[in-house]
Design a protein around this nucleic acid. Structure first.
Lengths: 156, 156
DNA sequence: CCGGAATCGTTGAAGGCTGAACTTTCGGCC
DNA sequence: GGCCGAAAGTTCAGCCTTCAACGATTCCGG
């Protein structure tokens, strides 16, 4: 759809914005994922660790809501984090349907070192925009994000 | 990283913008992918068809550059498009390393019906912003996208 | 108290993406 | 001409994601 679509002015403007939006967001995402990969974490894995870090142990259903993903996916992610020794599962005693996920000591250390680095990477990435521009970008993107029932996904 | 990160004002601002950026971009992408799926196309498949539609037959290496993806991925995408009868491969006679991909009649029909629908979906999605806001968003995202060698990806 | 409905988590199939190793083919340099 | 390196595609293993089907557990209305 690059530049060669013949259409109305409105269409060309929208397409142009759309392309830049997707390319830019992809560029930012790839850059951050690359840094996380160096620490042996997926973006989603990082998200789960970070949520547990700030909110404490949570059942998987809560992680589903926080991470905007599916139950099967959380099972998969927690499987991998557990295999890496970063979290542990614990069946809830009161309501045996729930499985509480909590950080291990290793998980706490990992997120404690990765989080600050990740934050500064984000700051650095966005530093090509002035503070006012960042606020404006946030405002515009929020309007785009709230569209109807499109709840899913925080990456891609 | 939702709202509970303690840091400098700069960090909080950047994180806030980052969250909204990813959520918004994801929301837009999911919405559009859903519509393409109804037509039996992946976003990447659509991208390849659309490129061939506008530029004519191309070797796969050119598709790699246009679609910002990897060689293995293009092979995979073209495999699927070929299996669906939408494109055909043709080994180049002058330089037998190249494989030229061209649309079939079925592929031409498919892209001819899907493209306009996709464009209007984009227009509708972006219509929550005023024309001026769209231009501004494009300007900001372009600055974010051009960062260094981060060439990859047009989605996520 | 009991049976259906809802919730939580798991599983497996299917699809897509990446990166690295590999084959084939071509170009250039001696 | 012959060899080396570069380029185009392919293949494969590994990972991530979704979706639908399923078992386990709890809730709730009658």
């Amino acid at each position: 759809m690059g530049s060669h679509y013949r259409g109305t002015e409105e269409e060309l403007r929208s397409l142009n914005t759309y392309i830049k939006l997707m390319r830019g967001a992809g560029s930012v995402a790839v850059r951050l994922e690359r840094r996380l990969a160096e620490a042996g974490l997926t973006e989603r894995q990082f998200g789960v660790l970070e949520t547990l870090h700030h909110l404490g142990p949570l059942p998987q259903c809560d992680l589903v809501k926080k991470q905007f993903t599916t139950g099967g996916n959380i099972t998969f992610i927690v499987d991998n984090l557990e295999r890496a020794g970063l979290v542990e599962r614990q069946r809830n005693r009161d309501d045996r349907r729930y499985v509480t996920v909590h950080l291990t000591e290793k998980g706490r250390e990992r997120i404690a070192t990765v989080l600050p680095r990740h934050v500064s990477e984000i700051v650095e990435t966005l530093s090509v925009l002035t503070p006012a521009e960042q606020v404006e970008l946030g405002r515009l993107m929020k309007r785009l994000g709230v569209t109807e029932e499109t709840a899913a996904v925080g990456r891609r």
